[in-house]
Design a protein around this nucleic acid. Structure first.
Lengths: 364, 364
DNA sequence: GCAAGCAGTGGGAGCGCTCCCATCGATGCG
DNA sequence: CGCATCGATGGGAGCGCTCCCACTGCTTGC
């Protein structure tokens, strides 16, 4: 069929000009059809569409980007500190959600790893140079300047998780505090007396929220600070080894710990190792609860009770939110409506917090 | 001059033209400096570099792509059949290797999910329309036409894993056959008498290789087909549930199975479940060996003996190979050297097979 | 009956860059 | 001492597209 596409191998496909010629219309009209403008007669539209089909025309993205000033692409930015994130189920799920939601658009997904400060600045520049139309930020620490760099550059961006309680940028998060709280309440409800916790890195808001939920549950149970000064709190780093060390530390401080809420399943797996090393049974001696409901939770022995967060859905929601922001930016190139006397308030920024849920298994 | 495009906020950064003006040189010279051409005097180079720094100039990718006909981007294509891959450790590792290796380039990584046949064709068109300069293909089934579509379009591509023994395209693979063989030999060496296997989907070459390794080991041990007709072979699909079903099937066929080689750790986890359900102990009653050495192997109880393949390194190798192919394509736009009477032989295609290694843990 | 209005259209003017040809001294050589 | 050479440079000509203005017929309004 596309007998066209003559012999020359490497040449890129037909151009708009050729399509227009074939359809017997002007370049402008052809462009209008391709882009679905309404101001085209039915006859013409059909003719152009036929030409497109015959020639197997595919718009040249670079040309379009150059002329229109938009790249039809968004970036998923991943700070690669500690090489950690990729292995995490969290990331795969986000990725799945993002690409699924993007599948319906003809937007492209760019994956960008940010390694260090230099990379961060470089990316901010890239973004400013309009190499992408929007940015998704995953696993951002509280002190990361990148989001603000992007905002200043006028680049639409959505965070997965907040950096602080007062996050200024659009974000999608899950209800970490409540999730942790129900997890700990569950442990208390099962009659556990010394409920400890292994937290994430406390420079991450998500880790602080889960710790807060832990405290909240204890407080609600009238069990505030027993024993005092957080002896039952160990700071981990969301890694397996961190969970293991945290557990050993907790046991060292108080050998009678009988339950642990871990701020991630992976850390719970680490804690499980430590428990095994020290000859403790789960859940008989120590009950364990994780967070995420990732695959590892199901595979542990015994299977891990955990707090499920709808990660894939979060990925999808982030994309929807970003596309929305991009559309806004389109209509209102520089957020100029704030020039209309109306300050861009925080409330203009979309945000979404999805619910978490306790999944009970045999570890508690 | 182009006072045009005045202040409007969303303005992209400075242009090459402005950099050139600032440095007091012509556009061509500025471009030469930016692209590291040698034909520039030291003085001029310094002046331009200073201007770049002062202005914070970042080349506009779209313009460059349009003018130069290359996108400085490669695509990682993932067929999303069954929604499976993203969750797999295999994928995360590849991804990590790929993006690490790419970090040193200023090449961009595009992630593309292919959902169905339509998506496949669409992507082939995209590629042909030069939206990317090269393609990495992951988890391709034996009958997938995409690789050939790409080759016909003259698009450099590298596969992870072969589609068949006679793979025509460049690929990076690991030594699946030998890996499986040492795994099974290990089992036999431990005195197991009835060694079964749960394979991957047999339309994937990787699965057939591992099955072949299994047979090879039995043959070498003089244990060919006992019992006959592959009663000890169950076909799985690389999923946990598939592993579970495979194990149940094997036990049904022959309750005296005392060892199982699973073609992936995830399936081994499924098999472990089935074993537990039917009251069998690991390794006492049944020894288990997996493949991949993914995180799940370490977390299982008991920890899983498995065959390690250097997945991250495979990702890196794929990128190196692809960049190399792209450079070739550059020099020799249409593989025209075959016009010189020299047919493009298979041997022109780079290929790489990395070694596998047995990791002994307590499940065997 | 004539000026507007409007849907539908064609095509010029760039977008910012790379490619490449023309230019211009400064050399080198016969 | 004049001419071919060469390193260094300037700038025109697009790349394929979108934007937008101008133009064509027609249907309206007064």
């Amino acid at each position: 069929m596309p007998a066209a596409r003559a012999e020359g191998a490497g040449k890129s496909g037909p151009t708009l000009e050729q399509v227009a010629a074939r359809a017997g219309v002007g370049r402008g009209t052809a462009s209008r059809v391709i882009n679905g403008s309404p101001r085209v007669s039915e006859r013409t539209r059909a003719a152009v569409q036929a030409a497109v089909a015959e020639l197997g025309y595919v718009p040249n993205r670079a040309a379009r980007a150059l002329a229109a000033g938009s790249m039809d692409a968004i970036a998923l930015v991943v700070p690669e500190q500690e090489n950690r994130l990729f292995a995490e189920p969290y990331f795969s799920e986000i990725l799945r959600g993002v690409s699924t939601e993007l599948g319906d658009t003809d937007m492209q997904l760019l994956l960008t790893l940010i390694r260090d400060q230099r990379g961060r600045e470089r990316f901010a520049q890239y973004a400013a140079a309009h190499r992408v139309d929007g940015v998704l930020l995953v696993s951002i620490h509280g002190d990361d300047p990148l989001p603000d760099l992007l905002r200043d550059a006028g680049m639409p961006a959505v965070l997965s998780g907040r950096r602080s309680h007062a996050e200024q940028l659009p974000y999608v998060d899950s209800d970490n505090l409540l999730g942790a709280q129900i997890a700990v309440e569950h442990l208390l409800g099962r009659g556990r007396r010394k409920v400890a916790t292994i937290t994430g890195p406390l420079d991450m808001y998500v880790a602080r929220c889960r710790l807060e939920g832990y405290h909240e549950a204890l407080r609600a149970a009238g069990r505030t600070r027993t024993p005092p000064d957080g002896r039952l709190v160990a700071e981990g780093d969301f890694t397996e080894e961190g969970g293991r060390r945290g557990m050993l530390e907790l046991l060292r401080r108080d050998p009678e710990v009988d339950a642990v809420f871990c701020a991630s399943d992976v850390m719970a797996a680490g804690a499980r190792l430590a428990l095994r090393e020290t000859g403790r049974r789960v859940p008989d001696d120590v009950a364990l609860v994780g967070f995420d409901d990732s695959a590892v939770a199901r595979h542990m022995d015994p299977p891990l009770t955990t707090v499920r967060q709808p990660i894939e859905e979060m990925g999808r929601a982030m994309v929807r939110m970003l596309l929305d922001l991009m559309a806004r930016a389109q209509d209102d190139p520089q957020g100029q409506h704030r020039a209309e006397g109306r300050e861009m308030t925080d409330d203009d920024q979309p945000r979404l917090v999805l619910p978490t849920e306790l999944i009970r298994r045999r570890s508690s």
